[in-house]
Amino acid sequence: MRPILLQGHERALTQVKFSKEGDLLFSVSKDHVVCAWYSANGERFGTYKGHQGALWTVDVDPTTTLLATGGADNTLRLWEIKTGKELKRWEFNTSIRRAEFSEDGRQLLGVTEKRQGQLSNIFVYDIVPDVTADQSTDPTLHITVELPRVTVAGFSALSRYIITGHENGSVAQWDAKTGELIKEEFPHEDGMSVTDLQWSSDRTYFITASKDKTAKLIDSETLEVLKTYVADTPLNSAAITPEPTNYVILGGGQAAMDVTTTSARQGKFEARFYHKIFEEEIGRVRGHFGPLNYVAVSPDGKCYCSGGEDGYVRVHHFDPPYFDFRFEVERERERGLQM
């Protein structure tokens, strides 16, 4: 199907997220505006105005009532999705790089930038999934991260761990109750920043994208690297398609500062599909004329979208062949299961 081009932002996209039902799409960009869209037709549902700086992150709670956003104005804000009302504002010393709800939607984490002599901090807040409730001002957990700058973070299954990705390519596991550092691993090349971390639908494993041109599938319990996907360009984002399909989608491209010197062909601004289990590239989707800053898959697996440095969001609904495609050995297995 023809992709839907969402032209609502004036500057580079930083993150795009589907609601857990897959019908809404939220996008944040450097132009200070949060947009919500219908994923089915690309119509705009609304905007959330108030932020005073570039936005870096957005997340939706599982019931699609609350929206969390954070950005360079050093605030983390909670919005009512339906009305666009700002419900809560937390202020920090540095900007918010990442915000994410736990899988039950009762906790929200925010990662602050390491800057101005401040270390990266992780703040966890208890959230009451009710628009009329008063949200607590003080965090239930505050981790001061002594490791290199935290770039990405999230809650694992059952909110047992907080997993962080770092500027030097390392991935760390923290106890989400006590804030204790449990484990630190180095799946990516040293010094090559982890640029994204996205979960499988049950949050038992996740995928990291890195500037070292690889994406890795990692077990959230053991931090063991399960799979490695090798691309030919620095990666900004990686997403896992929900089961039963077994794909991962990688996005990236030449760093934004080098882009003006290269042609669109050269920049490798394509979304790449890999088979999750066989680690083989299946196909690419072109369209953006800047690096892909974020790729997200709808939780229902019916479409995916990508946000680019070029200021556009492209929503692609999968065609039937996508769902029918199988490797011979997969067919073999399915036949075996049916019998």
Partner: peptide, 9 residues
């Protein structure tokens, strides 16, 4: 999980 429930609905 709540996330997966959302999809069910």
């Amino acid at each position: 999980s709540e996330e997966q429930m959302a999809l069910e609905v």
